[in-house]
Amino acid sequence: MSEADQRILSFLAKFRFVPVEIIRAELFAHQRASSVKPYVSRRLKHLRDLGFVQSEYVLGKSQVHSLTPAGAEFMGVEGGSGAGVKLAEYAHDRACIDAYLALLHRGDRTHLITEREARALTTDPAENPYAIAITRPSGKRGIAWPDIVSGERGSCIGYEVEWSPKTKRRLIYLMHGYAYSENYRIGVYLTTPDSHRVVSEAAEEANTTLEARGMGRPIAVYPLAKILDNETGRES
């Protein structure tokens, strides 16, 4: 297995899937435009032949690649339902890739990892510093995972890509989870036009409650487009 193959596998291990054009742009930007497409195609075919990578076309047009269960096991990350395309979540997962890359290219977000990488650290969520303990609206306790995390333990920033609206109550429970976690300093919610209003209202309510409890205002809300359009900005 070549160094290029290892880079591809490491990149795929971060996400459920990655479009082929992002693999070319992020991992092989130094290649000549005339040679990068056939070169990446050969490397991906080799990894498919090894049984580590699978590919598919989404909505008949976008070719994406993901780790197979064997590939996930080889890379030590979650397989099964943790990989591949889920059409209902495709737009959200694609936005998470874009947000991660935008934060990475800013250069000021240390220890940047994805949810999939965070989950892979331990088999027991209770021992995982990136897991957020929450109490669900039903009263049942559970675990939540940010889409992206930056920073060191004790001062982490969690990023949530809110592609479509959730109920305000559900959002507030997770926001409170950030405040009570000893590992997180702030939770940043990246919104779309569809989700911005309800997320902003939930954040205001959560911050007001938490501030009254002496816990500050640990929830921030930014339009996702602002992060994607201004990779060198310092808003969050």
Rank of each mutant, 00 (worst) to 15 (best):
H111S: 10
R213S: 14
R169I: 11
H46Q: 11
E204N: 07
G177R: 02
L12A: 07
R153L: 09
E117W: 02
N230D: 14
E162N: 02
Y159G: 12
A225K: 08
G158N: 04
L9H: 09
L104Y: 05
D5C: 11
Y159Q: 08
D147G: 13
V58T: 10
Y222N: 10
I23Q: 04
N207Q: 11
I148R: 01
Q63T: 12
I148L: 09
K86M: 01
K140C: 06
A99R: 03
S138K: 10
P146S: 12
S10E: 13
K14D: 09
A33S: 11
A131C: 13
A99H: 02
V53G: 01
A70W: 00
A133C: 05
S236W: 02
M215F: 03
F15Y: 09
R43M: 12
E205N: 06
G151W: 11
D147M: 14
S62D: 14
A202F: 03
A95W: 04
Q31I: 00
A144M: 02
P218E: 03
H46R: 11
G158A: 03
L44S: 05
P165Y: 07
H46L: 08
V199G: 09
R153P: 00
T135A: 07
S155M: 11
A133F: 05
A179M: 03
M1A: 15
A118P: 05
G154F: 01
K86V: 10
A144G: 03
E182Y: 00
Q6D: 09
R153D: 10
C96F: 03
H105C: 00
R16F: 04
F11K: 04
V221M: 09
S2R: 15
L59K: 08
V77I: 11
V18R: 03
S181N: 08
H105S: 05
H176T: 10
L104R: 13
Y159W: 08
G216W: 02
P218N: 01
I219V: 10
G71Y: 00
K14E: 08
W163M: 15
H92D: 06
Q6V: 07
K86N: 07
S200N: 10
E117Q: 15
G139Y: 11
Y178K: 08
A13M: 07
R185L: 13
R170F: 04
I157K: 06
I132K: 06
R94H: 07
P146A: 15
V161L: 10
E89T: 12
G82I: 02
F52N: 00
F28W: 03
L101I: 15
G80Y: 04
P223K: 14
A99N: 04
E127I: 06
V36R: 00
Y100N: 06
V77S: 01
W163I: 13
S34F: 05
D229I: 05
T209P: 00
S34R: 12
G107E: 05
E127M: 13
G216Q: 01
G177E: 09
A144N: 04
E78W: 05
I97R: 06
L59H: 04
A225P: 00
R234N: 09
L104A: 14
K168S: 15
T122Y: 09
K226T: 12
Y57C: 13
Q54C: 10
H30T: 14
A206L: 01
G142Q: 07
R94S: 14
Y39S: 12
A144I: 04
T114K: 09
S2Y: 13
D147R: 07
